[in-house]
Simulated scan of single mutants.
Amino acid sequence: MTRLRIDLAYDGGGFFGWARQPRLRTVQGTIEDALHKVLRVSADDADDPLRLTVAGRTDTGVHASHQVAHLDVSDAVLLRCVGHMEVPAVDALARRLKAVLPPDIVIHQVTVAPDGFDARFSALERTYVYRVADRSSEADPRSRGFVLRVDEALDVDAMNRAAAMTLGLHDFGSFATPNPGGTTIREVKNAYWRRIPAVPLVPSGSDMGESYRTPSLESGLLVFTIVADAFARNMVRSLVGSCVKVGSGRKSLDWFADKMAHPVREGSSGPIAPQGLTLEHIAYPPDEQLATRANAIRAVRTLP
Rank of each mutant, 00 (worst) to 15 (best):
V68F: 03
D72R: 03
L201H: 05
G209H: 07
E210S: 11
A299H: 14
Q21V: 10
A133I: 04
V27C: 14
H281T: 05
E125G: 13
F121C: 11
I6F: 05
P103A: 15
P285H: 06
G145V: 05
V82S: 11
L167V: 14
V110A: 02
A198G: 06
G270L: 12
D44C: 05
R57C: 14
P103H: 14
F121A: 15
F15R: 00
K245W: 03
V244T: 10
V244L: 15
G276H: 06
T184V: 10
V77D: 13
R213H: 14
F256E: 01
Q28E: 14
L101T: 04
A46W: 07
E152V: 05
A163I: 04
E187T: 13
P178C: 10
E288P: 00
T26Q: 01
R20K: 12
D72S: 03
R293H: 09
D75R: 05
R213K: 14
R126M: 03
Y130G: 00
R298F: 00
T166N: 04
H36V: 08
P88D: 15
S174G: 11
L221S: 11
E218V: 06
A119I: 03
K189L: 15
I185G: 04
L4G: 02
H281R: 13
S143G: 04
S248H: 04
T60M: 12
A191G: 08
T166K: 03
E280K: 13
N179T: 12
P274I: 13
T58S: 11
Y284W: 06
S206M: 13
A257N: 08
T278K: 06
R95C: 06
D151P: 12
V132S: 05
T177L: 12
N190C: 06
L303T: 10
R80Q: 13
R233M: 15
N190F: 12
A191I: 02
S211M: 11
H108T: 07
S65A: 15
T58A: 08
Y130Q: 00
V188E: 02
G270W: 08
D140Y: 09
L277Y: 01
Q28L: 10
W255C: 03
T53N: 10
A94H: 04
L93K: 04
S216C: 11
H66L: 15
P102M: 08
V236E: 06
R20L: 11
F121K: 10
E266Q: 11
R250S: 15
R237Y: 00
A261V: 04
R237M: 01
R298P: 08
T184H: 04
D45Y: 06
F16Y: 11
D258F: 03
D33W: 09
R149Y: 13
V132P: 00
F172T: 08
E187W: 01
D45I: 07
S219Y: 03
I297E: 08
E152Q: 15
P304A: 14
P114N: 04
P304G: 14
V87P: 09
G29Y: 01
G267E: 13
A139K: 01
S211Q: 09
W18I: 04
D7T: 14
Q109V: 12
L303F: 13
L148C: 10
A55V: 12
L71F: 09
T183L: 07
G17D: 05
K189S: 06
G267H: 09
D45V: 07
P215S: 12
R213N: 09
G29F: 01
L78T: 12
T214D: 13
V62G: 01
L201V: 09
Y130D: 02
L277V: 02
R25K: 15
G168Y: 07
S143I: 05
M235N: 00
